[in-house]
Amino acid sequence: MLINMNDIFCKIGSIGIIPVVKLSSAELAYDLGKALLKGSIPVAEITFRTDAAEESIRILSKEFSDLLVGAGTVTTTEQVKKAKAAGASFIVTPGLNPKVVAFCQEVGIPIIPGVNTPSLVEEALEMGLEVLKFFPAEASGGVKTLKALDGPYEGKASFIPTGGVNTKNLAEYLACSNVFAVGGSWMVPSEAVEACDFKTVERLCHEARLLSLGFDLLHVGINGSNAEESLANAKLLSEMFGMPAKEGDSSIFVGTIFEIIKSKGRGTNGHIALSTLSVERALAWLSTFGIHPIKETIKQEKGKITLAYLDKEVMGFSLHLSKK
């Protein structure tokens, strides 16, 4: 089986979340796969912490072509062999084992090893690895440590924090510029999986995916017919709501909520601006609705998209995304 490493990492990055799953029985795998896909998180890390891991990976890989299946808690080359033969597309290890890394590179399967110190990061980089598991995340200093690592290794290493990541700190982790994705098990709780309560798994996955995007309303842009009309309406809104008006070359902002355009801009009536933790991940999510960016509107900074208008109007308003 040939594995395109770039495609694997691109897909993981576009999803932003890796559910870490411990299965006591391979009989649970099929329903788990359906729940993950319905919950909009088409990736899973099946941990080698039970005897059911190998067969679970085989079932998920065979039955769900749209699901990216990886093997986690891999500590030996023998487990790598079993995982790859079962159809795993990537390997995740709790630590940095040079023997396991070398074997994965030899057989051509992507590996995401665990690191939590600068020395381990440098050792991984020396091995040609760029996407690394930051583990155990919270116990290793969490967001503070990740921000400290960003200085010396900016642009060289990206991290997938795992261990203590949950709904309360998910957004904070994903806001770090060097975080590639996060790993966790809160959206696939063992008690729900064991009870075959896959509706709960589906709901938690969907909530986690949306939470990872962090959508917030920035402002509403309203198209005016001409500068005079726009100035008059901006003044009225300013007086009505006690918000300061600030005039620019092409528009007037009233507080941070309203942008009055001096002439007809994008959208029949105007635009709605939304912020997100990652424009790239947001675009991947919106593509499932058949919505895509307008190419000429895309702006980038340091290789990441900072702004993009969408090819969809809602009630006469165009939509645009901005990175938080």
Rank of each mutant, 00 (worst) to 15 (best):
P136D: 01
E126N: 13
E123C: 07
A227Q: 15
N4Q: 09
M240E: 09
T75E: 08
I272V: 14
D31W: 05
K302L: 11
L310E: 03
G155S: 06
E126D: 11
V314G: 09
A195Q: 14
V107R: 04
N226T: 05
D7K: 14
G164R: 02
M187P: 07
M315W: 15
L120W: 07
R49D: 02
L211H: 04
F103N: 08
Y30T: 06
N4P: 00
T47G: 04
L236V: 15
I18M: 07
E154C: 13
I57D: 08
L237S: 03
E130W: 07
E301P: 12
K264L: 14
C196H: 15
I272L: 15
V220R: 09
E130K: 11
V201I: 00
R281T: 00
E301Q: 14
I291D: 02
A282L: 03
T93R: 10
S25K: 15
E296W: 05
F103P: 06
G33L: 09
I3E: 07
A175G: 05
A195R: 13
N178T: 03
G87C: 07
F241G: 12
S190C: 08
L28M: 14
G290Y: 02
I294P: 05
N116H: 12
A86K: 01
I112K: 11
S25F: 07
H320D: 10
G95I: 11
F253T: 01
T276W: 11
K62V: 08
F317D: 06
G108I: 06
F134C: 08
F198N: 04
E154R: 14
D51I: 06
E259F: 04
K246R: 14
A44D: 07
L68S: 01
W186F: 04
E296A: 13
G183F: 01
L274D: 04
I112C: 12
R203L: 13
I294V: 12
K246P: 00
V165A: 09
T306K: 03
A308E: 02
L274K: 00
A44F: 01
S14G: 13
V131I: 12
F180C: 03
V179R: 09
G242A: 10
V254W: 08
T93C: 09
V179E: 08
V43G: 02
F289S: 13
K38L: 10
L170I: 02
T50I: 00
N97E: 06
V182I: 05
N226F: 13
E194N: 15
G242W: 06
A26R: 03
N116S: 09
E194K: 15
L125T: 00
D197T: 03
G214R: 09
P244V: 00
N4F: 09
A71R: 03
V179L: 14
F241Y: 02
V43F: 02
G141S: 10
E45L: 11
A181S: 10
Q105R: 07
A284M: 01
V220W: 14
G248W: 08
P42T: 02
L274N: 10
C205K: 01
L174N: 12
L125S: 03
L174F: 00
